[in-house]
Design a binder for these strands. Structure first.
Length: 885
RNA sequence: GCCGAGGUGGCGGAAUCGGUAGACGCAGCGGAUUCAAAAUCCGCCGCCGCAAGGUGUAAGGGUUCGAGUCCCUUCCUCGGCACCA
């Protein structure tokens, strides 16, 4: 243990370069399977290589790195990989703008962003780096897709897409602005084209049920997934009819299918409502212009959720009639704007007596409202049924059937069973589970994605590419120009022989949804170099991911698809896990001040925070802001997410260059708990930097003043310390205990603050004796280790330079010592009748009686008890004593 | 509308089982150092009050020796969503 001299001045750049060089030379983060140690797979969501890192990345990866380094020091075998979600639309857009091939643009971005990540000192095993645009990665997308085809999980059907008639291309939803193509301004059409689907609905039950096993996921994410999957248990049945089209064919084989969760109310049906796109609506509109206009309006109606919530229920009669399946009575069919074609069969039975929407609709159009459910009140009498108190009636499952013939008196479950049985007997329906979840369409009519491995042959149809011909490699020199998929012009790619008959055939040019790429990358990180198999036994060692970290915006799609993919891979015998992510942390977004000015000429003009000056009142509250440019006021809009358009983004690169990676990391961890939003603050960055300078300075003091006083033989274990040193040592160990507790909670802001408190205590403590030197060296060693996952560079340097050991990452994580925490005398809070009135000091071993006596005898007690006797004395051991007068 | 999270100083945020509310940091104020400034260091910093003390965790009520924390009612903010039959 040889200590070096630590210079006075803290130079982050040099310190960080040196630390990173050390990690590089020792291959510090490269890991392999080691069954002798517990493993910890720590994964942050891999970035899209958009060009450069943004603050969200820095926050995300810092959280992951803190957990990685903490677990490494705790003795875990930790894997933290990194890769690139490299396919996607922005690369094509960049290509259109700059005439650069998406491949080159993407790989340049990857190279730059990788440098940025490395400059932040993340403990990443770069030997496992994966980019989804590499053929040796996406080969396995194709391979698994073929397995899914074999199993029937992947299948082909037509899909509705947004079609730009000018560019002759399919548009993504975000490329459609106000119904027009984003580049051409042409009115977008709906087109039906064939595409491939994955039967995620086959796994709906398991995807829903297994949510209960994900105890370490945020509750809200599980709820969002459950709602998305949307399971409803009910009855699907048909209203028979004789409605025929012009050619005389029965519409829907003479059946109007509906789904209901309230089959017990079937005798209360007073009409049916169908969606605007329903075949019966289409038929009725043929000689009814008013209805045709209404249907047209519904189709173009807003699908915005805010409109939906306030939308008036509207409808029109079709003039068509179906028959009630149990009573045979005629039932009128209406078109209702509140019925969705995309859910169930696009039609509902309407029971206005017991359903809110049906009720509003019936009221508006004066349709009959009938009671078929009743309920007893507390006195056992039937509650009155009245349309004035309709709120009390819809939705309730607590009542029993009335006015329902043979079902009268049955409760909800019994009535549903009886009705379902009768419908089944009449061959009119049966119980059914209805899902909101839809199968996953993965075909994209885009260039920059994984080719779907299919060959179209005139004779053999759509033929899967044989495994031996995988991967189907995407030509990388295409430059999309916005009009159609450039693969359609690549003759060398298109022309291929049919694998079945050998005749000339044509390659599929659709590519896969990029969500496919990200649905299994975490498994590939365990064995990225295997060119013989998608995954191997190494996945059994590392998977599942112990800690996954990413944005809440992926709460539904990415996480659901990954869960689905895991189950499919499991069923194919490729992996042993059913759920890929054991624990999930969804980090909050990074916000910054918003400044704008509204003018009639230019609309809203946004100001970057560095372009304005804030005005404060005497108390420091922000009262306004002015532009530096012209001194005129600008509107202060509070905090909002960092965005280019609002000009409030902060480039991490400039922050790293100014203050260093450690400062950036410390600020990110300190400013707020990981799940909450983080408000950007230049002053906060300064504060973080100030703290690290103080840490450095204390290291300098230890190297120059403290260490030279160290005795040859350590005495700390046995010696009785002077009071001030015992207090210092105890405080640091208490803070350590707190920090360890907070790390378990993943509450890193208070871990950071614990290190600040340690330094405050050390700076104030004595340092001019050999025993003090021993205490300081022990305590500073604790501080450095607790701080090291957050600011690894400066702590690496100080740990080494002060001679603790070569590599702080290899050091053991500190635990508080009982000997340091023990104290002879403790201070208890003194309350008189529940009000705090000071404190009493008692020996640590004092029993209840002694504490009571000491409390009553204390000066404060005498003063505030005013001579009255104590009615009761409450003693909370180690905390307080309360004298009730 | 429904579901979820939350409401604590000028600000970000602490407070593990109900036990000294406001830790730590930022901003602000005062002082030291300096020719001066920056940097640094020391001190103050919820509100009312000269003080003793009182009061205070969105509002109101309750349970308790004791409530930011538990229960009830109301209000507000943010996030998510599906008119899902």
């Amino acid at each position: 243990m040889s200590a070096q001299h630590i210079p006075e001045k803290f130079e982050p750049t040099a310190v960080e370069k040196a630390a990173q060089a050390f990690w590089e030379s020792t291959q510090a983060f490269k890991v392999s399977e080691d069954p002798s140690r517990p493993k910890y797979y720590c994964l942050s969501m891999f970035p899209y290589p958009s060009g450069k890192l943004h603050m969200g990345h820095v926050r995300n990866y810092t959280i992951g790195d803190v957990l990685t380094r903490f677990h490494k020091m705790r003795g875990f075998n930790v894997l933290q990989p990194m890769g690139w979600d490299a396919f996607g639309l922005p690369a094509e857009n960049a290509a259109i703008q700059n005439s650069v091939p998406p491949a080159k643009w993407t790989r340049d971005n990857i190279a730059y962003m990788k440098k940025q990540l490395q400059s932040l000192g993340f403990a990443i095993d770069w030997s496992r780096e994966v980019a989804t645009c590499d053929a040796d990665y996406y080969k396995w997308n194709q391979w698994l897709f073929l397995r899914m085809l074999e199993k029937g999980i992947a299948y082909k059907k037509t899909q509705v897409v947004n079609w730009d008639p000018v560019d002759q291309t399919v548009l993504a939803n975000e490329q459609v602005i106000d119904g027009r193509g984003w580049r051409t301004g042409a009115v977008v059409e709906k087109r039906e084209i064939p595409g491939y689907y994955l039967a995620i609905t086959d796994y709906a039950e398991e995807l829903l049920g297994d949510l209960d096993t994900l105890d370490d996921w945020p509750e809200r994410v599980r709820l969002m997934q459950a709602n998305w999957i949307g399971k409803s248990t009910g009855v699907r049945f048909a209203f028979p009819h004789d409605i025929r089209d012009a050619s005389g064919a029965l519409i829907g084989d003479g059946k109007l299918w509906v789904f209901t969760t309230r089959a017990d109310t079937i005798m209360g049906v007073t009409f049916c409502a169908v969606a605007a796109e329903h075949p019966l609506a289409t038929l009725a509109a043929q000689n009814n212009p008013e209805l045709a206009a209404f249907i047209e309006k519904c189709k173009h109606g807003s699908v915005m959720e805010a409109d939906m919530a306030t939308m008036e229920k509207e409808g029109l009669p079709t003039g068509l009639t179906v028959r009630h399946p149990l009573t045979g009575k005629p039932v009128d069919v209406w078109v209702g704007n509140y019925v969705l074609m995309s859910y169930g069969d696009g039609a509902v039975m309407a029971v206005p007596g017991h359903d809110e929407r049906d009720f509003h609709f019936a009221q508006k159009y004066s349709l009959p409202i009938e009671q078929v459910i009743s309920e007893k009140d507390a006195e056992g009498r039937d509650k009155p049924f009245s349309t004035d108190a309709w709120q009390e009636w819809y939705g309730t499952k607590d009542g029993y059937c009335v006015n329902s013939g043979k079902y009268d008196g049955l409760g909800y479950t019994a009535a549903v069973d009886a009705v379902a049985a009768d419908l089944k007997a009449a061959q009119a329906g049966d119980k059914k589970v209805q899902w909101r979840l839809r199968d996953w369409g993965i075909s994209r009519q885009r260039y920059w994605g994984c080719p779907i491995p299919i060959i179209h042959c005139d004779d053999c149809g759509s033929v899967p590419v044989p495994d031996s011909q995988l991967p189907v490699v995407l030509p990388e020199d295409c430059v999309p120009d916005g009009s159609g998929n450039p693969l359609n012009k690549r003759e060398d790619f298109l022309h291929v022989d049919c694998p079945q008959c050998g005749k000339a055939a044509r390659r599929e040019t659709d590519t896969m949804d990029t969500f496919v790429d990200s649905s299994w990358y975490y498994a590939r990180f365990t064995c990225p170099n295997n060119d013989q198999a998608m995954v191997d036994a190494r996945a059994d060692y590392w998977m599942p991911v112990d800690q996954y970290i990413g944005g809440i915006e992926h709460a539904i799609l990415h996480l659901l698809y990954s869960r689905f993919w895991s189950k499919v891979m499991g069923d194919l015998g490729l992996v042993k896990y059913r759920e890929p992510f054991k624990r999930l942390l969804t980090q909050g977004m990074v916000l910054n001040h918003l400044f704008s000015r509204r003018s009639d000429k230019t609309g809203i003009e946004w100001f970057a925070p560095e372009e304005v000056e804030l005005q404060h009142d005497a108390s420091g509250r922000v009262t306004g802001a002015t532009a530096l440019r012209d001194g005129q006021p600008v509107d202060y809009g509070g905090f909002g997410t960092m965005s280019k358009s609002k000009r409030n983004g902060v480039d991490p690169q400039s922050m790293i260059e100014t203050y260093g990676a450690d400062t950036a990391r410390f600020f990110m961890m300190f400013a707020s708990p990981p799940e909450q939003t983080l408000e950007w603050s230049d002053a906060g960055i300064e504060g973080a930097h100030r703290f690290l300078k103080r840490v450095w300075n204390f290291g300098h003091v230890v190297s120059t003043v403290v260490r030279p006083q160290l005795p040859a033989q350590a005495t700390l274990g046995s010696a009785k310390l002077p009071d001030d040193l015992a207090a210092l040592r105890r405080e640091v160990h208490l803070l350590l205990r707190q920090a360890n507790y907070d790390l378990g909670k993943q509450q890193f802001n208070t871990v950071a603050s614990a290190t600040m408190k340690m330094l405050n205590a050390l700076e104030k403590g004595p340092r001019d004796s050999s025993i003090a030197a021993e205490v300081i060296v022990e305590c500073f060693g604790i501080l450095l280790r607790v701080l090291s996952p957050i600011t690894p560079h400066v702590t690496h340097y100080l740990w080494d330079a002060l001679g603790y050991s070569k590599d702080i990452l290899a050091a053991e994580w500190p635990e508080p010592l009982e000997a340091a925490l023990a104290q002879d005398e403790i201070e208890l809070v003194l309350q008189i009748s529940g009000k705090t009135r000071g404190a009493v000091k008692v020996p640590a071993q004092a029993d209840r009686a002694a504490i009571e006596a000491a409390a009553v005898a204390s000066e404060a007690a005498q003063k505030f008890m005013e001579g009255k006797p104590a009615k009761k004395v409450i003693v909370v051991p180690g905390r307080l004593v309360n004298i009730v007068v």
